[in-house]
Design a protein around this nucleic acid. Structure first.
Lengths: 240, 240
DNA sequence: TCAAAAGTGTGCAATATTGAACAGACACGC
DNA sequence: GCGTGTCTGTTCAATATTGCACACTTTTGA
C-alpha cells in the first residue's frame, strides 16, 4: 500500500447517527469509530501507506481529519529549512482542525508514519456536525482538551529543561506511545535525526546523550534496531 | 479592590439560555457575555484585584473559569523553583479547563494581572452544559481551537528560534495583546523578569536584547515606564 | 519623606549548544 | 558481491547561554 486510495461516500444521504442515549455522559464507553462511521455526508475514507504525505504546510486548509488506524506525525518547516516535529498522533485523534478556527492554510505537514486509514471531513461539514451532534462535539472537545494539555506540557518542557532532559522525556513518551496493544517499552524505529527534531536540538547532541543513557543502562538496543527504554530514565527527568 | 468578592448565584433555578436561533452558525455575532450570564446554576461570579492568585499549581481542580473583564496570566513553577509564563489571557477566554480532561490538580498558577471579573463554573456543571447547550459548546470549541493554535505557535517558536527572536516575537504579541480598545502599541508594564519567563531565558539576556532593540529604534520608552513597540521589530523575527 | 523593595544596565567566567566534518556500520536493491 | 544511501559515533572550534555579581535607578508603602 503506497498510494492513497479513496472511497467517496458523499453519494449516500445523510441520516443522523444512532448513539447510546446520553443519560450519563461520563464514564460511558462509546465506540467512537462506530460513531464516526455513521457520518455519511461530506466525508471521505482514505488510506495512506507509510511515509505518505497527507497534507503539506502552506496548502489551503479545508478539511479536518480523523485518524482511525495507524500513526501520523505533524512537522513544521521553518524559513531556514529546519524541521520540527510538533506532534505524534495515534488512532482516535483528529488533526488539521486549525481550519475550523479560520486558518486558511495548513501550518504543518501531516504524514503517515505507518499504514493509515483516516476519515477526511469537509470543514463546513465538520462545523455543522459540531453544531448539530452532541456526541461528535463532545468527542472533539475531549480531543482538543488532551491536545491542549500535551502542547502545554511540551511548551513547559522547552521552557524549563535542558536538551538532555527533553530527550529523556521524549523517549519516555515514545515508549508509552501507542500502548493500546501490549505493555511495549520498545520504541518504533526513530532515527536520531527525528529525535533531534522533536527535542529541538541537533543530531550530534542526541547521539551524545543516547550513548550517555546507554552507558547508564537507561536504554538498551534490542537486536534489530529497536530501543528499549528503562524506567530508570525517569531519574534523568526528575533528578538534579 | 484587593480581596476576591463573590456573589453565589446557585440559588436561582436553571433555565435555558435565550440565544439567537442558530440558523447560520458562522459569521453570526453573539454576545457571549450575555450568553454566559444566562447560566445560572453551579456558577459563581468572582472579582479579583490586580495580582491576586485565582488558583495555584497543585491545588485540586474542580472548576473552569471564564474571564469576563481583565487580564489573567498562567504560570508554571518547576521543581527547581524556576517560573515560566505559559499564557496571557484576555477577556472572553476560558481557563482551568484541564480538569474537564480528568486532570485532578491544577498544572499552573492563575493570577489576575489587572482587576478582573470572572465566572467560576463547577466542573460537573460545565460538563453537562457542554453536553446540553450548543452555544456554550461552540464557544468552548472556538476557545480551545485558538488556544491550541497559540500553544502550537509557541512551541514551534521555542523549537526554531533563538532567544533574541523569541523576545522580539513576545514583544510583538504583547503590543497587540488586548487590542479590544484602541490601537495601542504601548505595552502594559511588564518587567524584564517576566519577559524572561515568557521567552524562556534569563533576565540579563532580556536586558541585553532590549538595549539592542532600543539602539536600533525597534522599541521606545514612553516617559513613565511603558514601552512602545515599533513594527520594525518584525524584521528581527523575519530576517536572517 | 524616607527606607526598603523591585527593577535595570553591565561585566564576566563557566557551560551548553551549534554546525560541520569525517569514518565506520548497516540495510537495501540490483 | 557491490555500490548507494541512511544512520551512527565522534571530534572540534565558534557561538550562545547561563548564573552570578555589583552599582544604579525607580517604585512602593508606611
Amino acid at each position: 500500500m503506497t498510494t492513497p486510495t479513496s472511497r467517496n461516500e458523499k453519494s449516500k444521504p445523510f441520516n443522523s447517527v444512532a448513539v447510546p442515549s446520553g443519560r450519563n455522559h461520563k464514564s460511558r464507553p462509546v465506540d467512537w469509530n462506530a460513531l464516526l462511521a455513521g457520518i455519511n455526508g461530506g466525508k471521505t475514507i482514505i488510506e495512506y501507506g507509510a511515509s505518505r504525505t497527507i497534507f503539506s504546510q502552506g496548502q489551503p486548509a479545508d478539511a479536518v481529519f480523523y485518524l482511525r488506524h495507524g500513526k501520523v506525525k505533524l512537522a513544521v518547516t521553518s524559513e531556514q529549512g529546519k524541521e520540527a516535529i510538533v506532534a505524534l498522533l495515534n488512532a482516535g485523534e483528529f488533526f488539521g482542525e486549525g481550519c475550523l478556527a479560520g486558518q486558511p492554510l495548513r501550518m504543518a505537514t501531516a504524514s503517515a508514519m505507518t499504514d493509515c486509514t483516516l476519515a477526511r471531513i469537509e470543514k463546513t461539514r465538520m462545523a455543522s456536525m459540531l453544531h448539530e451532534q452532541h456526541e461528535i462535539s463532545e468527542l472533539f472537545v475531549t480531543h482538543l482538551l488532551s491536545r491542549n494539555i500535551q502542547f502545554e506540557g511540551d511548551l513547559v518542557d522547552q521552557l524549563f529543561n535542558s536538551s538532555e532532559k527533553r530527550l529523556a522525556r521524549i523517549l519516555l513518551q515514545l515508549s508509552h506511545f501507542g500502548k493500546e496493544s501490549r505493555a511495549e517499552t520498545v520504541l518504533p524505529r526513530v532515527s536520531q535525526e527525528n529525535l533531534a527534531q522533536m527535542v529541538g536540538t541537533t543530531r550530534s547532541r542526541v547521539s551524545h546523550f543516547m550513548n550517555k543513557f546507554k552507558k547508564h543502562g537507561f536504554v538498551d538496543y534490542t537486536g534489530n534496531g529497536g530501543l528499549t527504554v528503562n524506567s530508570g530514565l525517569l531519574s534523568v527527568v526528575l533528578h538534579d
